[in-house]
């Protein structure tokens, strides 16, 4: 039986892992290879690296650190941040990333999803979505890595998930912005609504703070995996402790 995935998320800026609170105010939390290797050894099922400064400033992630990560870990990993073309994606995949994730560039140019899926297969193509409730509707946001450039997209989150899958997305990461970094629990209601229409793997992001939050988002929202950052980076919970607890609660995880 397929295990639910626990995925530490490492936000990267200038070659260091950082963590922000609701996308504002970042602090340095460590070295990329050290943290990647440590999480892989602890039993993380996958890792995601977001170059959070890449999209607003039109940079792309540096394949050099992608290669360094690929050499040290033996679990899958996904790279995100400013990937705007098939060539950008190819550089990261050939450096050893298993998937690429696109967010703002997909909103700006939805045909990029088709182009990536045609070239590399849908299994490599993750669409990340930053979403927040505005006047009773969940809307998508762009450029969430830069407080100065963040903007709301006139696209409803649920419509965008459907469109992204139709265009070839092989996985959706839904980041519920109001929960990001505050460790008060995932937005189980929003994620359950997304699950209803999401036919590909759905990964929850934003809000992990305690074991109960992970259990609830698996049981109530039915997601395939969860991203979490500060709860792991700050040692609030370790992955082995979390997995042992989830197993005892009846959630299928890999140990």
């Amino acid at each position: 039986m397929l295990a639910r995935r626990i995925i530490p998320c490492l936000d990267v800026r200038d070659g260091r892992v950082i963590k922000g609170v609701q996308f504002r105010g970042h602090e340095d939390v460590g070295d990329i290879e050290d943290m990647a290797g440590r999480y892989a050894r602890q039993g993380a099922d996958e890792l995601v690296f977001y170059d959070i400064s890449a999209s607003p400033s039109r940079r792309t992630v540096d394949p050099e650190w992608v290669d360094r990560v690929a050499r040290v870990i033996d679990i899958p990993f996904c790279v995100a941040g400013g990937i705007r073309s098939v060539d950008h994606a190819r550089a990261r995949l050939f450096a050893g990333a298993d998937k690429v994730s696109i967010n703002t560039p997909a909103l700006e140019n939805p045909a990029l999803i088709e182009a990536l899926a045609a070239e590399f297969g849908s299994q490599c193509v993750v669409v990340g979505i930053d979403s927040r409730m505005v006047k009773g509707e969940w809307l998508c946001y762009r450029n969430t890595g830069d407080p100065g450039k963040i903007s709301v997209e006139p696209k409803r989150m649920l419509d965008w998930i459907r469109e992204a899958i139709n265009r070839g997305a092989g996985e959706i990461v839904l980041n519920c912005m109001d929960r990001d970094g505050v460790r008060k629990g995932y937005d189980v209601q929003q994620l359950a609504a997304a699950r209803e229409l999401c036919s590909v793997p759905l990964i929850a992001s934003g809000g992990a703070g305690a074991g109960e939050h992970f259990r609830d988002v698996f049981e109530i929202s039915g997601v395939d995996g969860v991203l979490a950052a500060s709860v792991f980076h700050k040692g609030v919970i370790t992955i082995p402790e979390l997995k042992a607890w989830l197993l005892a609660e009846g959630v299928k995880v890999r140990v």
Partner: peptide, 9 residues
């Protein structure tokens, strides 16, 4: 689960 088969089994 969803198609394709993605993850640890």
């Amino acid at each position: 689960g969803p198609w394709p088969h993605t993850g640890w089994n």
